[in-house]
Nucleic acid binder design. Structure first.
Lengths: 205, 205
DNA sequence: ACGCTAACTGACCGATCGGTCAGAGTCTGC
DNA sequence: GCAGACTCTGACCGATCGGTCAGTTAGCGT
């Protein structure tokens, strides 16, 4: 992926604990929040001591940073690609494909940032993500900054973050095969982000 | 300090502090989360002591309960009305109007519940809200529990919760007059929730 | 055998957490 | 004047927070 790996072949167990801790921490951060997760909880859930957590990560914030960075790196590549493309319907459609894949792969990371990003300002990776979101919006909706387009983008982002994590809690009726979720998500996000040609003026009220 | 309450003698200064604390607590809960908010922070922000907070509310959980209850009561009325109505396009449209008003009036409460509801189970009002959401989904999508409809509803709910609170942080370019936001929101939510018969031509290549 | 180093841990620290309690100040009705 | 209720507070409690540190392992090159 996007991590520095001097010699991947000869590092079998080397960073096993580090990876386990990252995975456990991500689940906790997304489920109960960064502030609501204690280092002790993470350590217990991963089967280590609190001291071990602080051995692998210099601080709780650094742990959050490392946990979210791979997702932000991936998003950055997507935004770069979108920004350097022609604004055709074709490139837009390609972007949506990539974006959906990103949402599905990093759903916990996205949920963590979307739900708590505003309260975690000052942490490196959070600010970086915030800047990326701004770049993404301006790349998507060029100059016209209409209210409706802003809301459409926010709904797509916040809605996906909620649906893919918290939503599954309330609608666990079907564990919907991944591919089915993907198609549904793509359909809805496309509706929201694509410049829909004709939209009836909501009936007179 | 603050103003001498100039409101009717019917409701004297009796519960002034209580109301201030509720308002401050709601902002904090929505902004930094329930776990991330300390009673001391709430007390400081409201200009009281921590002991005062615990005088008006028997516990932190009880404070959350009282803060969210008005919103849940309002939502319950809306769901009751929807459930007892005929499933016509007309009643559906009326529901959406009420729902949008609800989202706008109680945006902080909705945001709090949507973002943290899963981690706050066991608190009375949270469980009640969870049951209401389930009732709402079943009232909206009768028997057909398709993946796409579940996602559409989740996107509308989670997207609105995000857009109306956190989203405003990232897109503060316009403080969009309330009425404009309302129309945009109604347009998008209608698209998402209304059983759109035919909305496929997005691939405008 | 040795020493070096990465991995890991318990004991401990000051700060803060939610919560309890014994009052102090203020207002009212008698 | 005074009793009582209401509002508010500081002092205090045990638990837990994020974080530090000295020390114990186990593996590896020499």
């Amino acid at each position: 992926m996007t991590q520095k790996n001097p010699d991947p072949a000869q590092h079998p167990i080397r960073h096993r604990a580090s990876g386990e801790l990252r995975a456990v921490a991500l689940e906790q951060f997304s489920a109960v929040g960064f502030a609501g997760t204690s280092l002790q909880q993470i350590a217990d859930a991963a089967g280590y001591s609190k001291s071990s957590v602080l051995y692998h990560f210099v601080s709780k914030e650094a742990l959050l940073d490392e946990v979210l960075t791979p997702a932000i790196n991936c998003l950055e590549e997507i935004v770069d690609r979108l920004a350097s493309s022609a604004g055709t319907a074709q490139t837009r459609s390609e972007f949506i494909d990539e974006f959906i894949d990103f949402l599905l792969e990093f759903r916990l990371e996205v949920n963590t940032f979307i739900n708590q990003g505003q309260s975690l300002r000052g942490i490196g990776v959070i600010d970086r993500a915030g800047r990326l979101i701004l770049r993404l919006t301006s790349a998507l909706r060029g100059d016209d900054t209409s209210t409706i387009d802003g809301i459409r983008f926010g709904m797509a982002l916040g809605g996906a973050a909620y649906t893919l994590v918290a939503g599954a809690t309330y609608f666990p009726d079907q564990v919907s095969p991944e591919e089915e979720v993907r198609q549904a998500l793509q359909s809805v996000v496309t509706e929201l982000l694509a410049p829909v040609p004709l939209r009836r003026p909501i009936e007179g009220k």
